[in-house]
Write a protein that binds this DNA or RNA. Structure first.
Lengths: 145, 145
DNA sequence: GCTACTTTTGCGAATGAGTCTCAAAACTCT
DNA sequence: AGAGTTTTGAGACTCATTCGCAAAAGTAGC
């Protein structure tokens, strides 16, 4: 059993829940194929090998994965919630290109530090960051429109 | 005509569009009553005095207001898009309390500066920031669960 | 102010991501 | 294997947001 499976299993167990086959398939698929993803795309990938995992189950599993700390909710894009890995990935922020939809990831230690400092001044207990910007990426700027 | 009306009118004109009565009502209501708001709440307020402004028109006007730079899209909360003023408000970031739903606003010059610097290294042309964190606010931390 | 033209509006229908229900299936423990 | 719980898939459902359309309102030129 891989590391992330073990973590998820422990998390579930602590809540009296089970690491079932569909949950395992979802978790493994996420950690095999995807960086950023949304449920729809995930569903398509999963369906290739497992025709019997339903959308509902994926939707039901996402909050568990988020709560477990393995993934987090990320940008909302084209009216869909997106997710990204946390486990095994260092904090970073996103630049979302509004022309091509690509996401550029950038290390963000400094911003993170500042944010924590600010939160401390307000006695706010941060559970999750959301840092980024929308704009136009380098290659889209070069395209003549 | 108030300042923000003039700005919006000029913006619309430049696009060959018109500052109609419904658009004016929407704009004025936003700038009179609201800091953060969502379309639903805005609709209720507007309806008190103007029974003939439809939801569809509000939905259609929001992107124009965003594009004009008067307001921006903000946190998404309870499955609803939220908006906030920009015109007349300095940049700030949000701490959203996941217990009580309150939003704490904090000045963020420093983070902004860092973000701009990072964007510059990637040649990314920022049009809109999105900075914030979720967590638990001071008073909710004190509540015993 | 009136005409001709374009944009806008309100209404209700449509869309679509995400949630819920429920009976059947899968786990877990003994 | 059986009892008791949690999960699941399928499809119905919700509800924010968008769309289509015919009527209404703005605008520019007379």
């Amino acid at each position: 059993m891989q590391e992330h499976e073990k973590l998820f299993k422990d998390f579930l167990k602590a809540k009296g829940l089970k690491l079932t086959l569909p949950r395992r398939v979802i978790l493994d698929t996420i950690f095999t194929y995807h960086q950023h993803f949304n449920v729809d795309a995930l569903y398509d990938v999963i369906r290739k090998d497992h025709q019997n995992v339903s959308r509902a189950t994926i939707y039901r599993t996402m909050p568990l994965l988020v709560e477990s700390g393995l993934i987090k909710q990320s940008l909302r894009c084209q009216s869909k919630d997106h997710y990204e890995h946390i486990y095994g990935h260092s904090d970073h922020l996103h630049f979302l290109c509004i022309k091509c939809g690509n996401i550029i990831e950038v290390e963000s230690k400094e911003i993170e530090k500042t944010l924590k400092k600010l939160a401390a001044t307000k006695n706010f207990d941060i559970s999750d960051y959301n840092l980024g910007a929308k704009g136009v990426c380098e290659s889209c700027q070069k395209k003549i429109l």
